[in-house]
Design a protein around this nucleic acid. Structure first.
Lengths: 163, 163
DNA sequence: CTACATATTAACGTTAACGTCAACGTTAGA
DNA sequence: TCTAACGTTGACGTTAACGTTAATATGTAG
């Protein structure tokens, strides 16, 4: 399909700039298995690909947006690797039986993850509604104070309060 | 024992059971100002109210669902206290000018919080959609393998999966 | 080839968010 | 009143998630 392998490689400083992570953090994420280890140059310098960057972006999102611990992301990492292209949908499993079992396992795990995500969304929505109601009360308080203090200046839809 | 007043109080162990936090964590949250300090008995034992429990529940939600650090929750805590009833909407400020300024400040902060929440919701939704697409690919793989392995199965929803 | 910026590993340091233990005081039921 | 269960305050321990420093090797502009 693609004519040749994508040769564009990034040094760790480039990846740091692209992702906003520090070099230390990038190496750390590799160390604990949060990212596939990149190829090395002859001398041992890490050579990252675009896929590594995309992968890291997913990890960062899971960390920041979902608030997952790095341990929790480990369980999610399989899908992140699939999504980024670091793994094949079909691993090197030859027996269809095993392949099928593996896929079913993934399917179940994905369903669980999706339900958890939906639950999270629902909770955030309810928190948001609470905050909105509170903001409305604050707004009402502002409006009342404004009317009290400066009765004639506002675009009038307020009936005159006493005194 | 039972007083005529409806002022039910909880010991720290009760609060721990109600919230799922440990006693250590409850004291710690009070220590760093994440929760209003409760009244004490003559001997010094903490006496919590229902409001403390509700307050803690909000803190837990912010911690778990939003993934906030306890420091970040500190900034959100003002609203949590309002919502739980630990504070008055109008503090003891007498000057209407100051009161108004304070309310406007809260209004602005609330708007910012709400926008941040919406942004978070959007990001989670997009992550969810990605995962859903991936799950669909896995499901398709399962269906194909099942058909290969079990060709006479009565399931027939094979549409144009093949191109 | 030289110089110098950047890379590597190894090791120890740091902060948040609690856990755990000790020594001691309080509460409540028999 | 006694006592076992529960509470209190230090104070030190622990783990995750990196930061920092040092000693050394590698990459590259001139």
């Amino acid at each position: 399909m693609t004519s040749y392998k994508d040769v564009t490689s990034y040094k760790i400083d480039d990846v740091a700039r692209e992702t906003g992570l520090t070099k230390r953090t990038i190496r750390y994420y590799e160390e604990i298995g949060l990212m596939p280890a990149p190829e090395r140059s002859e001398g041992g310098t890490r050579r990252y690909t675009q896929e590594h960057i995309e992968h890291l972006r997913r990890v960062i999102e899971a960390r920041d947006v979902l608030g997952f611990s790095l341990q929790e992301i480990q369980e999610y990492i399989v899908y992140a690797q699939e999504l980024t292209g670091h793994r094949q949908l079909y691993p090197q499993i030859q027996e269809p039986e095993l392949k099928l079992a593996k896929l079913r396992e993934m399917d179940g795990a994905l369903d669980a993850q999706l339900r958890a995500l939906q639950e999270k969304i629902d909770k955030i929505l309810s928190m948001k509604q609470e905050l909105e109601q509170f903001r409305d009360r604050v707004s009402a308080g502002i409006a009342r104070l404004e009317a009290e203090h400066d009765p004639q200046s506002t675009k009038n839809d307020m009936e005159g309060t006493r005194k």
